[in-house]
Structure formats: structure tokens, C-alpha cells
Write a protein that binds this DNA or RNA. Structure first.
Lengths: 158, 158
DNA sequence: AAACATAAGTTGTATATACAACTATATGGG
DNA sequence: CCCATATAGTTGTATATACAACTTATGTTT
């Protein structure tokens, strides 16, 4: 009725079965996470940004007009192992952020998004939103539910 | 009651809100996918295998005792952009696979998992399974549901 | 205040990823 | 049969990731 092509995990990975529902779930979340990241980073490329760089700009906007330290950025990044120093280097080269030693604590560096950075983010917001609209086969209720299930999946022993 | 520590996405990324349910869903699936991959690859490291290498071994076991070509491996990998040639190189160095030119079609290469490879997989199966059991706060029904929702999320225009 | 420990970033390096260019083989007309 | 085209892998390279070692600055003891 709506022209969507269902692509089950079994079809994607050309595998007949995945043993247990848990195995299938785990593989499916990994696969779908990668699939989403590629869709987004592919769109971002036209603006010369990687997914992580866009992520950092978003964090900086959240602090604006206050500065953020590298530590703050790192703990909020989607992928914490990315090297925040070098990501910020790249953004600095492009004039999207400023960086200077923090006056109070000279170990820290204050990073602030520039006007140019804010402008660029406005543009990438649009493509993010366009991409999100492509998932409209998922109802808002299901979107909420997926979010809740992901949170539950990450719960761990206290 | 069961000592689990809930870690909502908002806590993980120290963000108050995610705009829309769709945005939260997308970010959460990406984040959770990465989170899972790290948990698995961290465990695999003790066997000197990366997640992708383990993935390739699994694919080869699926074909065993028949050979697989690089093309077949590539289309079944979780991350298709990984360079199958070089992944197989690594497995070859470790004696986990054999590789030889296909007799019928000399463009192709036949790759077969070795006994050593099969043995190693048995061990990594165990750790995979142990990890999966850690997600028992998710009921089997919910695991099925997550799988279905991931499939639905990836549906696209025909 | 000197010595030790901790914190915040930076740098180095090995490996992995993304993507394009290249080589070798096979296939299908004319 | 020869040439164009397609197929199957390989290689090169720029960027990114993972992780450890290293600076420099701050805090804490005694």
C-alpha cells in the first residue's frame, strides 16, 4: 500500500536464522545503528562534516554562549573514544569553533562555537530532520517505545 | 528489586531532552549499537579477534565445509565497508582460514575456515552467549519486538 | 614547601574504515 | 577472434578509532 520495501535482517545478511531472539536482537541493533550512522554521515559529507564533528558542534551549541571544556564534550559524545582534541582541531581549522586556555584552571581549554558554526548547524539540522521524516513508517508511539527498549537494553548490574 | 542501574540516554549523554521522539530514537539506536559493539569487541580482544574478524569466521562456518568467496563474505558482513581482503589477510596470518584461487573462475578466491578457526569460534560463541545472557532484563518477547522494530526502522521506499 | 597524587589535555602509534583507482579474468557481441 | 564491458579482488591513501604514554597544572600530605 505504501511502497515500502521490508528488509528483514535475514535478507540483509543473507542468513536463514539467528539462533536465539537475543542474538537476533543484538545483531539487529548493531546493524541498524551502523545503518543509521552511515545514512547520516553520508548526508553530512556535503557540508564537510563527519557525524562526530556535527555531534561536537551540537554539544557546543547546547552550551552557547558559555564555553565547553574538552572533558565536557567527551562525556556527551555519542562515541566517547573519539579523540576530542583532534575533532576540535578540525573544527578550529574550519573556523567553526574558537579555543583558548581557561583562565581559572589553566589545564582546561574553553571551546566556543562561532557564528559560522551556528549557521552551519542550522543547515545540518535540516538534513537531520529530513532524514528523521523518512522513518515515518514508525509511529511516534513506536519511536518512544524503541527509545525505552534501548534504555532498558543498556541497563546493567548496579 | 534486581539491582539494575537504569541508564537513560539523557543520563548517558547528559542532555535534558532530544527534541522529538524520532530524534531520541535515532540517537538511541546509534548509541546503543555502538555500546553493544564495544562490549562484544572488548570481550573478543582476549582471543586476538576484532568484531569483524569474528563475524567473518562465523560466515565461513556457515558455509563449511564449502568455501566462500570474498564477495559472499562481503555481502553478509555486519559492516559492508570493511575491507574483506584485508580482514581475510589477518585471519590467514593467524592460521584461522585458508585461501586459494578458485579453479572454475580464477578471478575468485575460495576461503575456508580451518580446524583452528572452528575451535576458536567455539570459544567466542561462549562469550557471545554469556554477554547475551546479561540482557535478561529484556524478556524474550521484548527481544523479538526489538528485532521487529529494527527491521521496520530500516524499511525504505521501494 | 617539597613530594606525591590526581586531573585535563595532547601526542604517538597501530589498527580500522571509507572510498577510489587499479589488475586480472571472464563474457558477449560483431 | 578481437574488442568492449562487466566481474572479482587487490592496492593505495586519507581519515578515523582505540588505547597508551606523556605534559603540564592543580590538589593534598606531612
Amino acid at each position: 500500500m505504501n511502497g515500502r520495501k521490508p528488509m528483514k535482517l535475514e535478507d540483509e545478511l543473507k542468513q536463514k536464522t539467528f539462533g536465539s531472539p537475543y542474538r537476533r536482537m543484538v545483531v539487529n541493533v548493531m546493524f541498524t545503528g551502523n545503518w543509521l550512522q552511515k545514512a547520516f554521515s553520508c548526508q553530512l559529507k556535503q557540508y564537510g562534516l563527519s557525524l562526530q564533528q556535527n555531534n561536537v558542534l551540537g554539544i557546543l551549541r547546547g552550551q552557547y554562549p558559555n564555553p565547553a571544556t574538552l572533558g565536557l564534550i567527551q562525556e556527551r559524545m555519542l562515541d566517547r573514544d573519539s579523540n576530542a582534541t583532534r575533532l576540535v582541531d578540525k573544527l578550529l581549522e574550519k573556523g567553526l569553533v574558537t579555543r583558548c586556555q581557561c583562565a581559572d584552571n589553566r589545564r582546561k581549554v574553553d571551546i566556543v562555537i562561532t557564528e559560522k558554526g551556528l549557521e552551519l548547524l542550522k543547515q545540518t539540522d535540516t538534513i537531520m530532520q529530513n532524514l528523521e521524516e523518512k522513518y515515518s513508517q514508525i509511529t511516534p508511539e513506536e519511536a518512544v517505545q524503541i527509545g525505552e527498549l534501548m534504555d532498558k537494553l543498556r541497563e546493567r548490574e548496579g
